[in-house]
Amino acid sequence: MTASAFVFWVLATIVLGSAAVVVLSRSLINSAFALLATFAGVAGFYVLLGADFLAAVQFLVYVGGILILLVFGVMLTHRIQDLDLRAEARQLVPGLFVAAGVFALLTAVATRTPWAQGPGRELSATTADIGRAFLGKYLLPFEAASILLLVALIGAALIVRKREDA
């Protein structure tokens, strides 16, 4: 087993194990911290796949932004004094069956389908390529995404603002 194979299996264990904790844990705080491991593990996958820029973005936005927001959400929606941050599940058994079915279906597709054959991407720095793509081919989505962020900011502020302005 080569080093990269070893790293892959370690990462796969981390990602799936922590994702299972996220979903099954009864404690919200545990879920949030397990999610940290999942996001970090996925960033590790990106490194293995040669997507260095995306790995950095994953760390900065997911771990540094989205996860912090989610932890805020957990903290603010539970009184801190009762440490019992329980989260109940409903219909766990049918849910498990659905999830298992979806997994079987997706795995069958993933392993049997002859995916598009191409040259692949050799492991090389991607930042310059992505920068060029953003200001070239993907200029319109790049600009549109900035409008999306502006609108989401306005919207989130509007929703939580307590006082109504006359």
Binding site: L140, I147, L148, I159, E164
Partner: peptide
């Protein structure tokens, strides 16, 4: 890429519009 991004750009402000009635 445009399909996904535009679809989400329709959805996210729509959620906020639905939540407009603060009272």
């Amino acid at each position: 890429v445009m399909v996904y991004l535009a679809l989400e750009m329709v959805s996210i402000p729509s959620y906020v519009l639905v939540a407009y009635l603060k009272r």
